[in-house]
Write a protein that binds this DNA or RNA. Structure first.
Lengths: 177, 177, 177, 177
DNA sequence: CATGAATGAGGGTTCATTCAT
DNA sequence: AATGAATGAACCCTCATTCAT
């Protein structure tokens, strides 16, 4: 089952199936509902992102490098796959509680990666030890997200990756002791 | 007739009308379509928020006080009216371009308030003059938004306002020279 | 109550009222329903047409003159008041049985005028006595009507009245002994 | 799938679907809108009528036989399928310009069949050469139509086909030299 | 395993009608 | 008598889901 991320645009099952080159009914052999499909797709995309990310983080000792890595990878990933960006920014921001709850675990595991890094940085004496890692994560994730949203809104008129450096500088100052 | 801000819950016209205590058809006396309704509601809510906010900002000289005010007012407003928070966080984050374009002007005017304040702070020598006001705004707005989103997700289990102080401290450090 | 024929276009009550320069509710002081309104308007228009027509017919002895008069008056009336033509051609040709039944009496009285004239012509020895007056009337009325319909469809690109003469000639030959 | 010609009665999609023994949504697999449905049905019905009619006309040399054939076939067709009669008489006589324009081509092609026949008759020396074929067609079509309308109004209390003979006689006299 | 035609519940919108003023 | 804001039933259409092949 390879519904590559290359196909949401409109999120009607008919179009998703067409984009994936399969029949509508086929989707339901793998998934119980459209909601589950959205969740599975999100899990797949974000899950693989996290796996790769953790791989890279493991090779870094300094939490500051790790934070830099997270931010750059996040922006790069969205820039590479604008469709995924759209999905995350809009498609998944739905009032539908089933979807919200469904993606929560994956999102939480990403949040934990960030929070762990902050904790590590605090232990290493780089980051302000009085910071709530959760709140710091919220600022970081929210900031990246808003930068990405603006970029999508702007019709991708500029390089998203280029925002990483200055954004990183602000965040660093914000969380450094 | 003023549409009650709490007239949402679900976004079906029937339910919106019921919540507002009016008939479905009545809505269409004031609004041409559901999309326009969403936009009008957003304009009304955010517009009045901005008006009040600017009033308060005018009485402050120091841009640092202004930033603090913005963050606190934003969080307070959402906490006072959790329904509005839900609408902004989820209901309006839609792929629908009409809505996105419709709310863009109001959102932009809020963004300008923030960016002006940052600019002022740079002129006053408080904030890093090399910062892009736009990017700083993105971090601030994105951060606040994410804090609010988490709060909504948590079923409002804690005081949103209480997050203002520590969030503010991080942001200050992040944008200060 | 003067809802002159000058106002159907679209047949929504709101527009009819606006055209007549009165409020929507006012209509319901004179009429129980939209259907009744349509019927009353039709009665008024066609009724006055018949009255005038009979006046003129009374001054003619020869049934052949009378038939000529009917055809010319009918076409003239529709040409003078294209709005009435539209109403008769389309607005009133509805599946709605209430309207059909409601206008039936007026229509029938017009039919009787025509059939009486044919009968007279048969007695005068001008028209084929073996003809069914009803069938002859159907041919005449149907013919006029179709000529008028074509004219309306053509966006009134030519003079409707001008069709009277040649149409009359055909009909005459058709019903003459 | 062929929409049963008797799938009308009322023109609500729900009822049309029910009559045709299919679901509402199914209709929209074959047709983009209700208007298109009406047009398609008309095209189908009238189109096949014209095809059969032209087949028959081809075997006749004399334009007088052809006119007789047209009138009899027209009346027979409506009598066989009273539902079609209702549709043509009422359902399609709508102010809706989309439908009017949509059925215009089919209707026009029927008109041409009639007008060609008249032209032929004029060439053969049977019909008055000074007649406008268009006007003659209007009288013929309008006459048939009115006869059919009366019949439908009468709740089909008598044999429609029986009207063909006397109607034909009148029309013949009307258009003969 | 895969298909895609068929389904039908659900939702936005219109508009004839009412009724408090 | 007149108004017109409010009503809400009715209707067209969409689209997630099913199931016979």
């Amino acid at each position: 089952m390879i519904f590559a991320s290359n196909g949401f645009h409109n999120s009607q099952i008919a179009k998703i199936a067409k984009q994936a080159g399969i029949a509508e009914g086929t989707i339901y052999l793998y998934v119980r509902s459209k909601e589950e499909l959205m969740i599975r797709l999100f899990e797949q995309q974000v899950g693989s992102f996290i796996t790769v990310l953790q791989e890279q983080l493991r090779s870094m000792e300094d939490a500051r490098d790790q934070i830099a890595c997270i931010i750059h990878q996040h922006l790069s990933r969205l820039e590479e796959d604008p469709e995924l960006a759209r999905v995350i920014q809009f498609e998944l921001r739905q009032p539908n509680p089933t979807i919200r709850d469904g993606i929560a675990p994956v999102l939480r595991s990403y949040f934990q990666v960030i929070e762990q890094t902050i904790l590590l940085g605090q232990e290493q004496g780089h980051f302000d030890p009085t910071l709530s890692p959760k709140l710091a994560r919220q600022l970081i994730f929210g900031g990246i997200n808003e930068v990405a949203t603006s970029w999508v809104f702007s019709q991708k008129a500029y390089a998203l990756r280029a925002q990483g450096e200055p954004l990183l500088r602000m965040i660093f100052r914000g969380i450094t002791k």
